[in-house]
């Protein structure tokens, strides 16, 4: 299949990955654009025996890291007040959407190492092997990060339950 068509097919998932990784829609699409341009320049480096998605994720994640190093433009971390204010105004019937919103807030509070692992495994459902290749660390490291990240997520979501979710019930 034409390489650009393959890229095009991966585009929605690539955008979702970038969005979850950065928490910032504009920054996410900038990264996706850089990644696509890079992918088209580097087609000859792609090993077709490996999943295209993992290759693209690797490039996008590296671009994200070098971008953060360059500009030290970290993801926006909101204050607890913002979170509570934001929720207070949400009507109860939108509780599900609220839970979804709070999960992305919780994600933003994880360290970037924990966030990328949980996004790759928990959202994108990549295999441990692919995640290990994408992040360039052994599977054992992936598993300990995953374990810690999930425990932190649980605590963050629980805290949110006390401050936000229960209040609107």
């Amino acid at each position: 299949m034409d390489f650009r068509r393959q890229l095009s097919a991966e585009l929605p998932v690539l955008r979702r990955f970038a969005r979850a990784l950065t928490g910032d829609p504009a920054l996410a699409d900038d990264l996706v654009q850089d990644c696509l341009e890079r992918a088209m320049l580097k087609t000859h480096l792609y090993d077709p025996s490996r999943p295209l998605r993992a290759w693209l994720f690797t490039m996008l994640r590296n671009l994200h890291i070098s971008g953060m190093r360059r500009s030290s433009r970290a993801t926006v971390v909101k204050t607890v007040d913002d979170l509570i204010d934001g929720e207070g105004s949400v009507p109860p019937e939108q509780e599900n959407r609220l839970a979804a919103g709070s999960v992305s807030e919780a994600l933003n509070r994880l360290s970037s190492q924990h966030r990328e692992v949980i996004v790759l495994v928990g959202l994108e459902e990549m295999s441990y092997r692919d995640v290990s290749e994408i992040l360039g660390v052994p599977v054992g490291t992936i598993m300990s990060r995953l374990s810690r990240a999930r425990e932190q997520m649980r605590q963050l979501l629980e805290d949110r339950g006390h401050t936000g979710l229960r209040r609107v019930k």
Partner: peptide, 16 residues
């Protein structure tokens, strides 16, 4: 449940 929440939070991007 975390996975479901993550998918609910970011699934919309797929349809944009």
């Amino acid at each position: 449940r975390q996975r479901e929440l993550l998918k609910a939070a970011f699934g919309g991007v797929l349809d944009e």
